[in-house]
Nucleic acid binder design. Structure first.
Length: 331
RNA sequence: GCCGAGGUAGCUCAGUGGUAGAGCAAAGGACUGAAAAUCCUUGUGUCGAGAGUCCGAUUCUCUCCCUCGGCA
């Protein structure tokens, strides 16, 4: 039952490994990649940045190149002898987005399949992972920096008013007190006249979605341990290096959130070590909680998500999935 | 031992003669080109203990206990 050799009955599938921070996604994804001739496609909104390694939880590795299915040379990241994609793809000052991620990741996914490998989507940015799996098409309105700057200081009420003038229907369903939501809605409505309905095109076929879900006690312990390990192994140097050698402004570093936010302040002498540590830990726990909330919601709309705890759970479900799939055929 | 300031939600503290709130934490939720971001909802606790005054005390008085300063 645990055969690692592909039989003719096995069908190609994409493994998806999600879960909160510090739940052990990377280790499982890498192990699955070795087991099933796979390549990892990262869905992590921070590991895309070069030079942010420790605090983003990158597994040790190096940048390398490979030849894709069309014969082109492409970049990848190699960790534990496994190819990883969507890691170290942009400079930290680059503004990236979920839409860009989905577009690029779809191409990479197709290429992995074309080369006969098993794609393993792995990441903690559930928004990105779900959008990729479901093939979400975002309104094709890129961010408008000057509009955003102009709206930045307006009250939610004023923003809502503006949105009502453009798209009253959408104004009824947005979060009326969330500036980020309101500004994006105004941005889209200004460009297109109204907010288009969201559509899902080109979802990933035959996904096996595995969700790591350690108990909260265990997770919080792991988060704290990992955080202290980062403090001890050079995250402060990394931040200083990003600022001096990579010329990443301090404000930008703070924008990355979590430890980058607090360690940057600590490195600059604005907060004590104790404050930095306490706040980082608090924010990490909040983050993990939001990831779990997202996962629960996704589960409500997708009954095929499977909760797992170990690598052998993952392998067990992979075997079942590839050998005798439930009727989830394309229609 | 004396003087002073306090003891109210897990923490920091407001507050009132008619049995109490805020922030943070915690829990839950939202999320469609910022997502490690952004935002929403949820607060009954012997108001340190005992006694007294009062129709009624967490609020006033007394005693005690504890904490923190200062003086010895």
């Amino acid at each position: 039952m645990h055969s690692t050799i592909k039989t003719s009955q096995e069908k190609q599938c994409t493994i998806v490994v999600v879960g909160p921070t510090a739940s052990g996604k990377s280790a499982i994804a890498t192990a699955l990649a070795k087991k099933y001739n796979g390549e990892v496609l990262s869905a992590d909104s921070r590991q895309i940045y070069r030079g942010l390694d420790i605090g983003t939880g990158k597994e040790p590795g190096y940048d390398a190149t490979f030849i894709d299915a069309t014969g082109r040379t492409r970049n990848m990241y190699v960790s534990d002898n496994v190819a990883h994609h969507m890691i170290n793809i942009v400079h930290p000052t680059t503004i990236y987005s979920a839409a860009k991620f989905v577009k690029k990741a779809q191409r990479i996914h197709a290429d992995i399949c074309a080369r006969g490998k098993t794609p393993i989507i792995c990441g903690g940015t559930l928004f990105w992972a779900q959008a990729l799996v479901e093939g979400t098409v975002f309104p094709s309105v890129p961010p408008n920096p000057s509009l955003r700057a102009a709206l930045r200081d307006q009250s939610p009420a004023a923003l809502l008013q503006k949105l009502q003038e453009r798209d009253p229907a959408y104004a009824k369903i947005v979060d009326p007190r969330n500036p980020a939501r309101l500004i994006r809605a105004i941005e889209v409505a200004t460009a297109l006249g109204a907010i288009p309905r969201v559509s899902s095109v080109a979802p990933i076929k035959n996904p096996l979605i595995l969700a790591l879900s350690p108990s909260r006690d265990i997770l919080y312990t792991r988060i704290e341990k990992r955080m202290d390990h980062w403090f001890a192994t050079g995250i402060f140097d990394e931040i200083v290096h990003a600022h001096t050698a990579l010329r990443v402004p301090w404000v930008r570093l703070e924008q990355f959130g979590l430890e980058y936010k607090w360690c940057t302040r600590y490195v600059r002498g604005y907060v004590s070590f104790a404050t930095m540590r306490t706040n980082t830990l608090r924010d990490l726990k909040h983050y993990a909680k939001r990831q779990e909330t997202w996962l629960r919601r996704w589960e409500r709309s997708n009954p095929y998500i499977i909760r797992i705890h170990t690598l052998s759970d993952a392998m067990h479900h992979y075997s079942r999935h590839t050998l005798c799939r439930p009727s989830q055929k394309k229609s």
